[in-house]
Simulated assay, not measured.
Amino acid sequence: MLDKLKDLCLLDGISGDEGAVREYIIDKIGDKAEIRVDNLGNVIAFCKGKKTPKNKIMVSAHMDEVGMIVTYVNSDGTLKVSSVGGVDPRVVFGRRVKIGRNNVLGVVGGKAIHNLTAEERKKSVPFDKLTIDIGVDSREEALKLVRLGDSVRFVSDFVEYGEGFVKC
C-alpha cells in the first residue's frame, strides 16, 4: 500500500493537468469496479458488493496539487509565473521546479536579499516579483524549452519519517 501511495505522490498533477494521476488510478482499479470519468475529469468508480450493505462507504480525494503556470518569459530567459490552486508564496522561494511536458528544471527566485528594502525583508515575496531561472541567458533560448501556459510543478521527494508519517 505504501508503494502505491509513493507512486501517486510522485506523479505530477497540478489543477487542470491531472491526466497522469487519473490514468494511474484507472489503471490500478482495472476491472475491479465500474469506472467513468465525468466532464470535469473526476474518476468515479463503483464497486458492487456481494450483498447489499446496511451502510455504504465513499472514498473521496483530490487528484490535483498546487503549482504554477508560466505567464511570461523575460529578456534574460527567466520566467514569470502565476499560482495555480492557492499556493502560499511564503513556501515558494528557493524551491526546485519542473516545467512543461519536457520537465525542464528550474529554481524559483527573486530579488537578491542584499537588494531588498527593510520593509521588503519583512514580507514574503509576492508572485508578481518571483522568477524562475532555468539556466539560460535569453528569451529566445528559454522559448526553445518552455511555452507560455506550461505547468510548473514542485520537485518533491517521498520521505518516510517518525512512526508511520510520510511527506511528499
Rank of each mutant, 00 (worst) to 15 (best):
V125G: 05
D88R: 06
D157V: 13
L5I: 11
T71R: 00
D7N: 12
L5P: 09
Y161D: 08
M68H: 07
D3I: 10
G49V: 07
A112H: 15
V159N: 08
I35Y: 02
R96D: 09
A118G: 07
Y161G: 14
D76M: 02
E120Y: 00
E141M: 02
V87A: 08
N74Q: 13
D137Y: 11
L143F: 15
L11K: 00
R96L: 15
L5K: 05
V104N: 00
G110A: 06
F158K: 00
D76N: 09
D128M: 14
E18K: 03
L5D: 08
I25L: 05
T131K: 07
P89E: 08
V125S: 01
F154V: 01
S82P: 14
V97C: 01
K50R: 11
K56A: 13
F158S: 05
E34P: 08
I132A: 05
I25C: 03
E34D: 10
I25E: 02
I99K: 00
F165Q: 09
A142D: 02
S156H: 08
R147F: 09
K48L: 10
G109M: 02
G106Q: 01
V87K: 06
A45K: 03
G100W: 05
G86D: 07
C168W: 05
V107C: 04
K48T: 11
E120I: 04
F46T: 14
C9V: 10
R121Q: 06
E34T: 15
V37R: 03
L105M: 13
R22A: 07
S138R: 05
R101W: 11
D3E: 11
E163T: 13
G94M: 06
K98F: 12
K111R: 08
I26P: 00
K32F: 07
R95M: 07
K144L: 13
G109L: 01
L105A: 12
G13S: 05
C9F: 07
D133V: 03
E141I: 01
I25F: 04
D7V: 09
E23K: 12
K98S: 13
L145I: 09
M1L: 14
K6L: 09
K111V: 12
P53C: 06
L105S: 14
D7G: 10
G13C: 03
G77N: 03
L10K: 07
K167Q: 11
V146Q: 01
V166L: 14
I57A: 09
C168R: 10
D137G: 12
N42G: 04
G85D: 00
G86V: 02
N102K: 14
G13F: 01
V37G: 02
L105D: 13
C47Q: 12
R101F: 14
I134R: 01
N39T: 09
E163Q: 14
D88A: 08
A118I: 12
M58I: 13
I113L: 11
Y161F: 15
L11S: 05
K4T: 15
S15R: 11
I57F: 12
D12N: 12
E163M: 14
G164V: 03
E119F: 01
S138Q: 04
D128A: 11
I44T: 05
P89M: 05
V136N: 00
I14V: 10
K98L: 13
I14F: 10
G16H: 03
